[in-house]
Amino acid sequence: MLILVVDDSMVARNILKNVLEPMGHEVIEASNGREALKILEKLAKEVGCVLLDWNMPVMNGFETLQAIRSDKDCGHILILMVSTESEDEFIERAIAAGANGYLAKPFSAEELKAKMADILKAAKPR
């Protein structure tokens, strides 16, 4: 699956990438929400999943989440929020806005894998 990883930290993106690629996924990166949306304009069909940080400059993860969810072309895209903001109200807001899952930083590789498996399983048509 082609996964778009959105985080302003290059290291944070690499942490995700270095877990996802060995799982067989292909990863492209964006460093803020606006950049992510630009990529999705072109590659909405190919991208299967977006991993979104919350606190980012230019355009934050929540705004990005809302923008993706309001775009018909992106209906199929799974969204996993990956953020240090881990209070319940943040999680609830993200899920209400259409996120498929929420992973709080810090996380281990196993937790990320498990979370990915969760949202992929939930998204599979029965």
Binding site: S9, N55, S83, T84, E85, S86, K105
Partner: peptide, 17 residues
């Protein structure tokens, strides 16, 4: 440079809760 920024972000973010 980038990673140290992320480190403090994660430490303070997870503590905030």
């Amino acid at each position: 440079h980038d990673g140290v920024g992320e480190l403090i972000n994660v430490i303070s973010g997870s503590t905030k809760k």
